[in-house]
Design a protein around this nucleic acid. Sequence first.
DNA 1: TGGACGTGCTAAATATACCAAGCACCCGCT
DNA 2: AGCGGGTGCTTGGTATATTTAGCACGTCCA
Lengths: 117, 117
Amino acid sequence: MADERLKKLGDFIQGQRKLAEMSIRQLAKAAEVSNPYISQIERGLYKPSADVLRAIGNALGISSEALYRQAGLLDEDEAPPTRVEEAIRLDDRLTTDQKETMLSVYRSFTGPSRPIG
Amino acid sequence: MADERLKKLGDFIQGQRKLAEMSIRQLAKAAEVSNPYISQIERGLYKPSADVLRAIGNALGISSEALYRQAGLLDEDEAPPTRVEEAIRLDDRLTTDQKETMLSVYRSFTGPSRPIG
DNA sequence: TGGACGTGCTAAATATACCAAGCACCCGCT
DNA sequence: AGCGGGTGCTTGGTATATTTAGCACGTCCA
């Protein structure tokens, strides 16, 4: 496996970890692996096994599928990635006002143009 | 990982291989792994890495996703509560800064702490 | 008969995924 | 100053994934 891919996967995991505001040790504990190993994965030193990937995905609140796709482990380019707008609209923890707020923020970020689909 | 799962995965692969009318060696060559290794995987002796699984899936003309699911590596019923967060984090139309902004807005709406486990 | 081919499997060696211990650093206390 | 607790990283070892060589059994064909 190209270590370029591993690097990309590592960067992705690190980015997601930071977005989730977790430390390496927190993630390691949640994913039930050692902390150095997370560090090593993030730096692209190792090719984690399938169930370690799954555990990391779970710990980060990312669907394993998204992780696999990022890791280049699902070539099938079906299965549309989760949509922000849709997810916001469907979230029952948000009030209607809050949804509108988030949607308008989102649209201001992404511009007026319609999303791909 | 329960070796029961490995056995089930192995049986599944073997079944698919036979349906595809391939020998172990043919599959091994197509998946670019050694032939004994295929044999060992089919008998549930080892836990193949994610990209070996993908290669086998490709060689057999099976969607990797189906394979992962068979292997119990896609939980599917995990992590639904974090859909919005995931969608935001994975959106490639947003910059990291924008993601952080939206996440903090979202968190302020839904409450401060939302640990994963 | 015999050997050139197929099949799946075994065994021993190598490569590498993964872990425990611990270092170096930074910070908020007291 | 010095502790206690946080951060990410390094090192050396063990466990295990993966391979190379080769066995034992079949079948077909000369």
